[in-house]
Computed example of a mutant assay.
Amino acid sequence: MADHARHGEGAGRDAVPASGPDTIELRAFMGLAELFRTRGWPVPLPVRVHPGTTGPELLRQLDIAPEQVEVVFVNGKAVSPDLAVISGGDRVALAPPGVPGPYRVLLGFRKM
Rank of each mutant, 00 (worst) to 15 (best):
G20Y: 06
N75F: 03
E57S: 14
A15Q: 11
M1P: 03
G89L: 05
A5W: 01
S80D: 01
H50G: 08
M1H: 11
R60L: 06
S19I: 01
P97R: 09
K111W: 04
A84Y: 07
T23H: 03
F109L: 06
R48Y: 09
R48P: 05
V69K: 14
T53S: 10
Q68S: 15
R37F: 02
T38A: 14
A28H: 14
R6A: 06
F29A: 14
A5E: 10
V72Q: 11
P21M: 09
P66F: 06
L94Q: 07
G98V: 04
P44T: 06
T54K: 12
E9Y: 05
R39Y: 06
V47Q: 03
F109T: 03
V71G: 08
V92W: 12
V47K: 04
G55L: 07
V69I: 14
P42E: 09
Y103S: 07
G12E: 05
G12C: 01
G52L: 00
F29P: 01
R6L: 13
D22N: 15
A78M: 08
P96Y: 02
M112P: 00
A65I: 04
H50A: 14
V49I: 04
V105S: 02
A5T: 02
L35I: 12
G52T: 00
P102A: 11
A93Y: 05
M112S: 07
R6E: 08
M30W: 10
W41E: 05
R13I: 02
A84T: 07
L32M: 12
G10A: 14
D82G: 03
L45C: 07
G98M: 07
A15T: 02
D14G: 11
V72R: 14
R13Q: 02
P51Q: 08
L45M: 09
P100G: 00
A65F: 06
V69G: 10
G55C: 06
L59T: 12
F73Y: 15
P81I: 03
L58Y: 05
A28W: 11
G40Q: 10
T38F: 09
G40E: 08
